[in-house]
Write a protein that binds this DNA or RNA. Structure first.
Lengths: 217, 217
DNA sequence: CGGTTAATTGAACGCATTCAACACGAGTGG
DNA sequence: CCACTCGTGTTGAATGCGTTCAATTAACCG
């Protein structure tokens, strides 16, 4: 039997070529200031987006104000791929960012070819893999494991020494289904165990990969 | 009876016609005994499945044995639509059941037409909607709300008086990220509040739809 | 019937939350 | 340069929700 929890390469692999091609040629670029909405919860699904620079988060609010962060999207990532017809999650600029978008109808008429359909399907599937991992994370992991898993995801994206944390503690908490206090406690705890090190609150470095992996299991 | 439950109709809508057509003509039927595996975690994604009779659950195990149930699939539902190349969740027969399957390659060569691609995309998207709801449920809801939401889902599927619970408490717990004891407590509590009624442990009836909706919010 | 598994209930515990106070850094203006 | 503020992050103490462990009851099936 192979590893019960294989790492998800969906997060690091680039989006399918056919889509990036269309994006490059037809995409319209737009800047979004920090904490502004790119599309709202309930909006029609009309565009397909790609992060050019900055970071984007998707969020969903319950009627009584609790917030769940869906995911974080980095430069090169596609987002806005939702079942439709309307967005169940809103997308917001986590930092000042530039986003490129094309109408989905444009994408569709553009090619009419199977290649493009497959590309969209592939991107959607990738999104699904993330969601599946997220479900496991939220359903069956302790606070310590959640935070460890989160740091690991980030570290995988930005290989090498120091890893930046573009999001604040509240965003992490709402992604992990925790409170900011718990997130903070787990971070200091992981640091105390010499598994990671935080030179500042928004930057860290993994000291013991194996220990982090064990935790994220 | 029309319900104002805001969440998704992905659960009740039938799968796209193009796919059911292919399924009907080319699908191979197979019986699976209760609690046997239909495909395993880690298996190659090769087939597309449809429940004919009985109920199927998808599950995922962490290396230390914790279990997360992905979803439950009823007659008419498609499953096995995973990002691939390998299954991140296993599929098991929750009860004795009959499942129809076709090779994905067959599906692909069959048509080569956009219609079929769209059908698969649509089915995948629907799967995604479920996952998104599941993420919100697991991340930001109390035990009481989780259980209420779960009962509501079931009741929506089987409109009318009595609703059957095909799964045991353990499956419910692993779906909701709780323990069997907590699930049981919440059920008796909801019954005590006259919101639902359980004539037996595997059958219930909703007494106050509005109250249930409020909770599931 | 007994024998077995599933479900419920009770009591004690513990993890994460809540509420509150404090520390830190960046920006502003005296 | 220091004082002040504001936002963000950390830390502490007390509470509570869900878990854990254990015992009881109900359902199922020979």
């Amino acid at each position: 039997m192979t590893l019960a929890y294989p790492l998800n390469d969906a997060r690091v692999a680039p989006p399918p070529a056919a889509l990036t091609g269309v994006m490059d040629r037809l995409g319209v670029r737009a800047g979004h200031a920090k904490d502004t909405e790119i599309y709202a919860q309930g909006d029609d699904v009309q565009y397909l987006y790609r992060v050019v620079s900055g970071v984007v988060r998707t969020t969903r609010l319950t009627c009584d104000g609790r917030r769940q962060v869906g995911d974080f999207y980095y430069p090169g990532d596609l987002f806005g791929l939702e079942p439709g017809p309307d967005h169940r999650f809103a997308a917001e600029a986590l930092s000042d960012c530039v986003v490129q978008s094309v109408r989905r109808t444009t994408v569709r008429t553009m090619a009419g070819d199977a290649e493009l359909d497959r590309a969209i399907l592939e991107a959607t599937s990738r999104e699904m893999a993330r969601l599946q991992d997220h479900v496991l994370l939220l359903g069956r992991k302790s606070a310590r494991e959640k935070v460890a898993g989160f740091l690991m995801q980030l570290a995988q994206r930005q290989p090498g020494g120091a890893v930046m944390l573009p999001m604040g503690r509240q965003d992490m908490a709402d992604y992990l289904g925790l409170t900011i206090e718990t997130v903070s406690r787990m971070l200091t705890q992981l640091q105390g165990d010499l598994i990671v090190e935080f030179p500042s609150s928004r930057r860290f470095q993994v000291k013991q990969w194996d220990a982090l992996e064990d935790l994220a299991a």
